[in-house]
Simulated scan of single mutants.
Amino acid sequence: MDSATTQEKLVDFQHLIAVETARKQIRNAQLLTVFTGVAVIAAWLVGTFVANISGGSVNQSGSGYYWTLEVLFIFGMGYGISRYNVLCSRLMFGYSVVGALHALLTIGVTSLGISARIGALSYKIYALYYLWIGIDAMQRYHLLMKKERSLAADGAVNTRSQFTEQDALQPRSAPAEPLNPTPELVGLCGGDSTQAQWLLSKAKSKHPDRSVAWCNQQVIEQLST
């Protein structure tokens, strides 16, 4: 196999890892959005319970309709983020900005204790950080997909590679026993021993009954085809 083909396979591998990283960051933003929705439901239930035992109005915080719409909005944005919708991620970020400003401006003003308000503000800032990362990851993901479609149209993507995107998405856990890639395998990976180790680990996990030498040879043959 010539150096150009080897480099092409390495570029494909790096592309898959970049896609995996972006997807994980988007998933984190989605999970945070879902958690926010659950927290809003919990806050509404607690507020209703406190209002009932204190004899106050259940809808004293702007009526149950507001809470319902807010929860529907949050879960809707979470679904949109799971579908890689950039607009939904930006709307959720804007919602979190408004929430953070509200939490900041109402510290010590509402009936809640200042510790509760500081906790809410801290969570809003935490949410903003991960949502911002999610927005950036969403944009990178779409650029990567656009590049992948363009390369596929030009016939430049190795679609027959046995190390597919599904492989890249699997967790790269440490092997049960030390796996030592051969110098030839490391050379095919451009001298990157970490990458060679991971490829060998993948082959071993697929063929646990085979020897390390056999797995080394399999990976070498796959990269050489």
Rank of each mutant, 00 (worst) to 15 (best):
A18V: 01
T182R: 08
T159G: 07
A39H: 08
I125Y: 04
L143A: 12
L101V: 14
G99Y: 02
D209I: 01
N85F: 05
V50Q: 06
L144A: 12
G62P: 02
D209P: 03
L31W: 12
S57H: 06
C189N: 04
L72A: 15
R149F: 13
I107W: 01
T159P: 05
V109R: 14
N28R: 14
G55N: 05
E148L: 11
Q60A: 13
D192W: 03
F75N: 05
W198D: 04
N59G: 15
D2N: 15
G56E: 12
P181Q: 05
A213S: 11
L169T: 09
Q195M: 14
G78M: 03
I26C: 08
L179I: 08
Q197E: 01
G99P: 02
T68H: 06
F49H: 11
Q222R: 10
D136L: 09
S111C: 07
E8G: 09
S63G: 04
Y95E: 07
W67S: 14
G155D: 09
K124L: 02
G76V: 02
P171I: 02
A174E: 08
G134V: 03
A22C: 07
S111Q: 12
F35S: 14
F93K: 14
L169E: 09
A116W: 08
H207Y: 14
I53H: 08
G37I: 03
L144G: 10
A103T: 04
F93H: 11
V212T: 15
S3D: 11
V157F: 02
V98A: 11
L87E: 12
V109W: 03
F73R: 14
V219R: 01
G187S: 12
F49S: 14
G134E: 02
T6E: 12
T159H: 11
P178I: 06
L143G: 10
Y95V: 12
Q14T: 05
F13N: 02
E20K: 15
C88W: 00
G134F: 00
Q30C: 06
G47W: 07
E20T: 13
G187D: 04
A29Y: 00
R172M: 13
Q7M: 09
L104C: 11
I17H: 07
G187A: 14
A42Y: 04
A116C: 03
L91G: 01
I74Y: 00
Q25F: 07
K9T: 01
P178C: 08
P181V: 13
M77A: 13
V11I: 11
S3Q: 14
Y66C: 08
I220H: 00
T68S: 07
E177A: 12
I81C: 06
K124C: 04
I53V: 15
S122T: 11
R83D: 10
F13W: 12
T6Y: 04
S115G: 10
M145P: 06
R83W: 06
S54V: 09
Q30A: 11
L87K: 13
L16W: 05
A196K: 02
V86S: 10
A51M: 06
S63T: 15
Q30P: 00
L144P: 02
L112R: 11
Q218F: 05
S211Y: 06
P171S: 02
W198I: 08
V50T: 09
L87V: 15
A22K: 00
S54W: 00
N85T: 08
P183F: 06
F93L: 14
Q222A: 15
K124I: 01
I17M: 10
A100I: 04
L188G: 01
S111Y: 01
D12N: 10
